[in-house]
Design a protein around this nucleic acid. Sequence first.
DNA 1: CGCGGCCTTGAGTTCGTTCAACGATAGTGG
DNA 2: CCACTATCGTTGAACGAACTCAAGGCCGCG
Lengths: 252, 252
Amino acid sequence: MPGSHAALGRFLTRLETHSSLTTPEQQAILSLSWREVSHKANRDLARPGDTVTYATLVAAGWVGRFESMRSGAREITALYLPGDLADLHSTVLPSISWGLTSLGDTTIIQIPHHQLAELAKQYPNLALAFWRDTALDSSILAKWIANIGRKDARARIAHLFCEMGLRCERAGVGSRDRYSFPLKQEQLGDATALTAVHVNRMIGALTRENLISIESKHLTLRWDELVDLAEFAPDYLQRVRPDGSASESRAS
Amino acid sequence: MPGSHAALGRFLTRLETHSSLTTPEQQAILSLSWREVSHKANRDLARPGDTVTYATLVAAGWVGRFESMRSGAREITALYLPGDLADLHSTVLPSISWGLTSLGDTTIIQIPHHQLAELAKQYPNLALAFWRDTALDSSILAKWIANIGRKDARARIAHLFCEMGLRCERAGVGSRDRYSFPLKQEQLGDATALTAVHVNRMIGALTRENLISIESKHLTLRWDELVDLAEFAPDYLQRVRPDGSASESRAS
DNA sequence: CGCGGCCTTGAGTTCGTTCAACGATAGTGG
DNA sequence: CCACTATCGTTGAACGAACTCAAGGCCGCG
């Protein structure tokens, strides 16, 4: 609970890719109190309708945000990697309509909402950073809508592979063209709005074309070819700015 | 430019449905400076790749956020009504990967980013409110992913009708079962990831079943039946809280 | 009155689904 | 150490929801 957890360091690094923070602000992040929890694969960490009092910071493994249909179908609407605060936005909207689930074995850190809110009030610049982090999440959601809505199965899967590659690289848990991919095909289907069977066929096709290869949950991919196939334009992931600054916060 | 625009009042009302604000905070919102701009239908107000210096507050008509594919296909990822700040999040992420377009004739108010950022710094509680508003937007995006990914055409259209009905009602521009719907069928297709032709057929089906009727861009719908058909659960639109408070700042 | 934009309808096609069976692999207990 | 089982991945065949292409109808506007 006390003492800085490595995952907080990852989160800080993540924040600093889009926002520049002062030393006291950095310290404040690292001094957040936490509770570590580990989960086996496929456990629901939060369910639709819950009211949560802490945010979930991924420390190891992948976490998915999902919605369920009456029919039993599931749709994964977002994926979170180590260093991602999966539901930072729940700090300001604690009554959630979605769920969180562990994809593969995961370890998470729970951070009380009131501490995050306190930080946001005490350090206006941190409030902007949190807001910006939520905006970034939102930007990814919008891109997923476009992909699921207007691209075919191959391109959707390829796009997910590119996105997660780049995010893994930035999170320091792999390189863009080779990283651990813990989802089973059914979950990959839930994330791309396809059936497991069709995911299987598309993976087969991509493999036969030598665009990707998967061995024991390890994905290797031909970056340039896949980027082209997927129409992957990483600007929505908000590249690290040259000066690392939060631009407008100094402007005005 | 000076003096309070009616749209700012709408925006304030909107903020107060999820956040409780003090009188000075309310005044600060109403004192924002602005520039009014009117657009004919189908004009791009912002394009992918732009760096924007102001946020776009809808005053009249509907605005859509979209992404374009190489093929020329378009996907509308979000819709905004009068009182909505369509790109509040651009305040913290001014380099945009998406575009904004007018759906039908619209009037918008441009609000300089630096003013919004200034307010967020000066009033921590407003920063939370802005953050919360972005989180709410994000919540809608996630729901759209689930709908487009896992529901059939009829249910997708029905869901959009329900969502926009409730949002119109809350925005004070109609009632949930009867409101002005300015999109043409092609745009409705872009918002639901369908073709205009198929939208037309589904609208025809819903009309024949007496679930909806449309006359001169005016939509009337059987609320209960459509809610059931669409599996519409409005909790993601974050109901107005009884006490109107920001809850989590007290909890835990 | 004629033109352009939007809506409507039909017929054929396709991408992804469904259903069903089989194969591989890893963990488990005797 | 091996048989047993559950889970996940793989493959085939038939089906269907939504798409494409194409033509015609309606309505408002100049």
